[in-house]
Amino acid sequence: MKAFTYERAKTPAEAAAIVARMPGAKFLAGGTNLLDLMKLQIEAPSHLVDVQDLGLDRIEKAPDGGLRIGALVTNTTLAADERVRRDYGVLTRAIVAGASGQLRNKATTAGNLLQRTRCPYFYDTNQACNKRRPGSGCAAIGGYSRQLGVIGVSKSCIATYPGDMAVALRVLDARVETVNAQGATRTIPIAEFHRLWGDTPHIETALAPGELITAVSLPAPIGGRHLYQKVRDRASYAFALVSVAAVIQPDGSGRVAFGGVAPRPWRVEAAEALLPQGARAVVTRAFAGATTSSENAFKVPLAERTLASVIAQAKG
């Protein structure tokens, strides 16, 4: 690990101001992704601003009947919250499908959203990777691509956003609240939070440098059956090959997003409108224009079967 200095910020605006001002500074939340990457020198911040004292660790009822989740709420606390379990079950299910109990106790809501890709070449600093070193090329294209993206990817990078929680947040139409160095706040719809990166795969989100996530808010509950199904190489403690987050209403309509397939949770509203027609109709529409390799082409039929299973569970 490269040497760094460390401090704890006292207010969100102060944290944002420090990171915006100091080149090489980064926020540190749980540290379960950032420290992992720092050990491999994929990330090498020169200064860490620990955000644990900012008082962003509560889940509050919002005036619109929804919930406002502080950026520092741990994954375990969020998944176990009674209101989330009752009204936003897809979120609980997605969180507990990810990582391990130990990691979820440390991982935070904001850190989880910002976790970086698990592309094996991103992790191997000897390999070309446009995400890690812009302009160096992409060793994954034509390489070992079984885990990688099939839709929304580019000629510069075919990696996926690997997380589970954000796939559920996408079907729930969550909003990401931020503050910048000037103390100005804004709200980013989750649909616009993770970028389709095109030729700039190193820029992964809509956040400006130094912009701090303060909360993630959920609109009022929408009812329906809440399901999250994750397919992976072992039964637990592995990243998704394909996952499906869905909220299905009694009339068969609903919302659906896919994980493990794209640079962001993949939800196509025009495709989910076809839910009453079944999984094939939805997946054909949602994955139209997919660019698969021989190693990851299985993800499209797997997405269809996983969605079919989710639809069957919703009926049962």
Binding site: T32, D50, S100, Q102, L103, N105, K106
Partner: peptide, 24 residues
């Protein structure tokens, strides 16, 4: 963070001590 051998209990919660800085 992949094996759990380093698990300790901090303020009543289990965590992986390898993915946490002491200064945290």
């Amino acid at each position: 963070g992949q094996c759990g051998a380093c698990t300790v209990i901090v303020d009543g919660k289990r965590i992986n001590s390898c993915l946490s800085l002491a200064v945290q």
